[in-house]
Write a protein that binds this DNA or RNA. Sequence first.
DNA 1: AGCCGCAGCTCTTCAGCCGTG
DNA 2: TCACGGCTGAAGAGCTGCGGC
Lengths: 336, 336
Amino acid sequence: MTKLRSDETVTMQSVAVAAGVSPMTVSNTFRYPERVQEETRQRVLKIAAELGYIPNHAAGNLASGQSRVIGAVIPSIKNSSFYNYVRGMQDHVATEGYQLILKLADTLSQEASAIRTFVGLRVAGIALVGDEHESDVKTLLRKTGVPVVESWVHENPFDMAVGYSTSDATRVITELLIERGYRRIGFVGYQGDVSSRFTERVPTFKQSMEKAGLDSYRIFLVDQADGFGAGPKALEGLCAIDPDLDAIVCPTDIVAAGVLFECGRRGWKVPERLAIAGWGDYEIASEITPGLTTVQPHSYEMGQRAMSLIIERAAGSGATGMMVDTGFHIVKRASA
Amino acid sequence: MTKLRSDETVTMQSVAVAAGVSPMTVSNTFRYPERVQEETRQRVLKIAAELGYIPNHAAGNLASGQSRVIGAVIPSIKNSSFYNYVRGMQDHVATEGYQLILKLADTLSQEASAIRTFVGLRVAGIALVGDEHESDVKTLLRKTGVPVVESWVHENPFDMAVGYSTSDATRVITELLIERGYRRIGFVGYQGDVSSRFTERVPTFKQSMEKAGLDSYRIFLVDQADGFGAGPKALEGLCAIDPDLDAIVCPTDIVAAGVLFECGRRGWKVPERLAIAGWGDYEIASEITPGLTTVQPHSYEMGQRAMSLIIERAAGSGATGMMVDTGFHIVKRASA
DNA sequence: AGCCGCAGCTCTTCAGCCGTG
DNA sequence: TCACGGCTGAAGAGCTGCGGC
């Protein structure tokens, strides 16, 4: 004997004794119900419930090398952008008898630490956002062979990916503004080390403008951490480039809302003085006045598909390199 | 032999062989570095890194009966209300060498399922929000003896609690409105099965009004799921009770922002025609115009203290029944 | 002081038992 | 004779507590 664990610890063994069966029958009752006679099963289940028995996942994981837990790393919960993504993941795993656990990571090194925790836990799979990760953890993930899905990623998956083309969406929303007659269009991006799902929009914006014979120099970068506060800064920065700016493309609806609030302070009419396009179709986009014209990624579906890719792999089918395009659409409201 | 695991699985054993030491020395290197000679430790660490070794938490948990993982159940990430709470938790556990994992649960039964997952994982402790939980899981938690902290709870903890008095905050914000000369004050609450941290505000509001000799019948309940949309509904409902309503107390800044947007649509000046008080000091409270006067709970500290209570208990000190009051303060802005 | 061997944590895989048709 | 349904026992899975050298 080694441990000074309380004697009252409820184990499979104690359930077995109380139910008058072997531990194996208890195990089978939970894992392969069809292998156990109805009557026996009911008895075991009843006893287990009475004793408050919950199978020790650590022991099961160790013995079987399998897990029904999937880990997801989420960049932030500061705003609602990942709400539907997480709901999609959660709803899908529930239907398959899996469990989802989350870790938050604002930076690459936090992401790396979260991944190490998940690997230590020997989860069935890992869902990441974006395609930039520390090279050490990439090596680690390769070595362990755990299924990994990158979300919001549209090409060159590390393992598997689910997402949509931010380039396509940038082109479509820019062309929409051009079509509606705006000419002096400004673009707001994020500065510093941000995900490529933001940085790859800039060249596409330029191309779309140039293709229409328009100038593409109205570009201003803000700090991703600024939230709503980025709006006023962006507007000021773009007005310094061109005081006659007539439209603005924002990296998120939060920034767009910040711009809209600032227009309110300045007494600028939207969209008459300035048209505003957002990104993400957050709840606020439909609630403020005027409503925000914005890109709606299909985040809920993205979450669902991310989980189904992992579960398929864990179940034996599925393969590395799989990619799913969940698309996007433009929600047209009054702001642009 | 049992498993058909890949032979390349990196275990403590394989690290030990490669480093020319026993498995126990590898174990000590990770868990009790001071027990191992500097030179040996460096060698083991180097080999471990080369092989991409991550200790199997399941095996360690099983062998030691301990865990460095803490589970937290969060009601929602739809808006930013729990952002600082989670940051506080995460920052604190990191300093203590623990890891935080999250599960989202919108309903009591989802919470129960999340708790069962955490118990199955044999986490070191569990952080919950609010004081309402399924009675089955309460029994289960009692039986397992896992440390549990309830947050946003100010009295009668199930095990331990950290929070502030929503009653006190309701009184203070109501008295602020009265002091500022508002008389026809309306109160917005949530209908249905919501946490007591919302329901207990109603009686306090009534008391505060009556104590000042004012009418307290201007009360309207909205659906918690409505988000910003609850604002217009609440305003309409309260105007039906009293068209000359001059101030409104909202359950969250989101609802308050919804009311503010609706005032914009109606052409009502804030706070001249209607004063608005929010709750939570979300990011939007300082960004919209006018800024929202609101209750600022010290969520970051709440998260930190929740984790320290759990870690103390896991480390042997600490006791059931512990409670921490993290307080609150009122942020005065232009809306009221 | 620094390092090691043994036994054991709880569960699952697999082989096999026993009685029946 | 064998197949099959329902159950069981032995042997680890990878790690750590403890005592020994």
